[in-house]
Nucleic acid binder design. Structure first.
Lengths: 141, 141
DNA sequence: TAATATCCTACTAAACTAATAGGAATTATA
DNA sequence: TATAATTCCTATTAGTTTAGTAGGATATTA
């Protein structure tokens, strides 16, 4: 139940782009430097975020990444699912293969927990995080 | 974000004991057989549950395990924490070592998610699960 | 003393995580 | 038209974690 570095770094990258990438492309090298994340590793992560449609990109000098959707639309759930696939606490919630269904009550229980988690993740939008960030920076000024 | 087999098996074992272990010792071999879990592996798991105080045991022939607390008290959170240690989605929620606190807003965000998850897990008692189980078995009768 | 348990200490194969490496393709600009 | 800056693509790898296995010591009952 630990978040992977991919999810943590990926979220930071998206928050960075959301905060500093208005009307411009943000390069991996910039994010890597400012957020202190290995360039090459971040590359892998950006690829995931792009191929699941959260980011778009522009190649070549002056190029970089930009958000594919509005910051009011993108949620933590989107980010996590893009990077690690949909979250199912137990496999039987997605695939079928349990032969103990008669006796099994835990499926419903885990499903319940899963839903609570999912709902929470969906409720946290990139916009909220960026706002929070601005308030925080201000309070230090 | 998948539950480990230890957590899944451990939970099943506890539910089994809660359901069938009134006023008697339940052996690992019985649980192993009825729940289809490798005996030796289950042994490891039971040790974890015992050493964190959820189970007590009696050695020797006729011995086995029994709940150390009431089924009204034991929650999913207890079970998960006993097996895998306290759940912190990100390390900075437990240990100290982040040098980016000034800019970091994600700590609060993850903490928020963490709390929601924790609260949910604490709300699900072994008693609820056993009740659910009985209802289900009844409905098949 | 035999059978049935837990208890204890190790070992191991497979999968997953967190990177790293090298270069090809694309684009802006000097 | 070079050159620099960028994404894109394909691999490889070291380390960690997971899921399980193995063998025997110790305790208890009958």
């Amino acid at each position: 139940m630990k978040l992977s570095t991919k999810i943590r770094y990926g979220t930071r990258a998206l928050v960075y782009i959301a905060a500093f990438g208005k009307n411009r492309y943000v390069s991996i090298s910039e994010i890597s430097e400012k957020e202190n994340i290995s360039l090459k590793y971040l590359e892998n992560i950006m690829t995931l975020l792009k191929s699941s449609g959260l980011l778009r990109s522009m190649q070549g000098a002056g190029g970089g990444y930009y958000l594919a959707k509005s910051i009011d639309e993108l949620t933590l759930a989107d980010i996590m699912y893009s990077i690690s696939g949909p979250i199912f606490l137990v496999r039987c919630l997605s695939e079928y293969e349990c032969n103990r269904e008669m006796e099994c009550v835990l499926k419903d229980v885990w499903n319940d927990v899963n839903n609570v988690l999912d709902k929470k993740l969906r409720s946290i939008k990139l916009k909220n995080i960026v706002k929070k960030r601005k308030r925080k920076i201000k309070s230090f000024a």
